Structure formats: structure tokens, C-alpha cells
Amino acid sequence: MHPYLSSLLGGTLIGTAAVLLMASLGRITGISGIASGVFIGKRGDRGWRVAFIAGLIAGPLLLTVFGQDRGIGVPQIGLPLMALAGLLVGVGTGLGNGCTSGHGVCGIARLSPRSLLATGVFMTFGIATVFVMRHLLGNA
């Protein structure tokens, strides 16, 4: 499948999932909020959260099993740096009251000024990080 088509399909699935979650449960599809709710949320609210996270994990695993892995593979920068990156993302989502899916997909769709600003900040720092890692530090 052409990369543009798989990207279009992926974006369509993400948008559909966001609409279905909002329509069925009245919830925003913010992955950091969904994940944290598994551990600190209300007991009766955990089932759909666990199912959602399981689906996020199952998708790439199924692609790999059926030979459709697009080369994501093993992190090239090592586990310590990946752990640090994950920690920084977690801190950032806490400070920003949400993540790229909550702000970037659902917030922008609702024309939330806070989400527009947050997404601009995410994108700016993401671009800067890639530039520094690839061009200044020489990591591929």
C-alpha cells in the first residue's frame, strides 16, 4: 500500500475512533488521559480505558504478525534515552493538560484556542528535537 494511502487510512481510523468515543461515552480521545485513568480513574470507568489501550497495542502487533510492519522496529537511540523521552512526554502532557491526540485531534476539531496553542507548542518542540537530534548531534 502506498504510504499516502496508509496515512490517509490511519488518520481516518483515528478520527472515526475519536468521534465514536465522543458519541458513545462523551469522552475526549486523549491518550494520556485515557492511560492515566486506568491507574487513577474511577473503578467503573476503567474497562473502556483498558480496551482502548489494548487496541493501541494490538494494532501494530497485528501489522507485524501479518508482515505489514513499516520498519518501526527497535529504537535506534537506546532504551535509556527512550525512557527519558517518555518521562518528558509524561511531564509535558501533565503540564499541558493533554497530549497530541487530545489537543491535536479532538481540541482542534472543537476549535479550542487552548488546543490550538498546545498543538503549536507540541509541533514546534517536536520539529526542534528532530533538528537537534539529526543535524546537531548526528543521530539518524
Score class of each variant (00 low, 15 high):
64 T>F: 12
64 T>V: 15
64 T>W: 11
64 T>L: 15
65 V>E: 09
65 V>G: 08
66 F>C: 11
66 F>I: 14
67 G>Q: 04
67 G>K: 07
68 Q>I: 11
68 Q>M: 13
69 D>P: 10
71 G>M: 07
73 G>R: 14
73 G>N: 12
73 G>C: 12
74 V>E: 11
74 V>A: 13
74 V>I: 14
75 P>C: 08
77 I>K: 12
78 G>I: 09
79 L>E: 08
80 P>N: 08
80 P>D: 02
80 P>I: 06
81 L>I: 14
83 A>R: 05
83 A>D: 02
83 A>Q: 07
84 L>H: 02
85 A>G: 12
86 G>T: 01
86 G>R: 02
86 G>S: 05
87 L>S: 07
87 L>A: 12
87 L>E: 03
88 L>V: 05
89 V>Y: 00
89 V>G: 01
90 G>T: 07
91 V>F: 04
91 V>C: 05
92 G>Q: 01
93 T>I: 10
94 G>Y: 07
96 G>K: 08
96 G>M: 14
97 N>D: 11
97 N>Y: 09
99 C>Q: 04
100 T>V: 14
102 G>T: 10
106 C>M: 13
107 G>A: 03
107 G>Q: 02
108 I>P: 03
109 A>I: 07
109 A>S: 14
110 R>T: 08
111 L>I: 13
111 L>A: 15
111 L>R: 14
114 R>P: 00
114 R>W: 02
114 R>A: 05
114 R>H: 04
115 S>W: 00
116 L>H: 05
116 L>T: 07
118 A>L: 05
119 T>Q: 00
122 F>H: 00
122 F>V: 01
122 F>I: 02
123 M>F: 05
123 M>G: 07
123 M>T: 12
124 T>Q: 00
125 F>G: 01
125 F>T: 06
127 I>M: 06
127 I>T: 05
128 A>C: 06
129 T>N: 10
129 T>L: 13
130 V>E: 04
131 F>A: 15
131 F>S: 15
132 V>W: 00
133 M>A: 11
133 M>C: 07
134 R>Y: 02
136 L>S: 13
136 L>V: 15
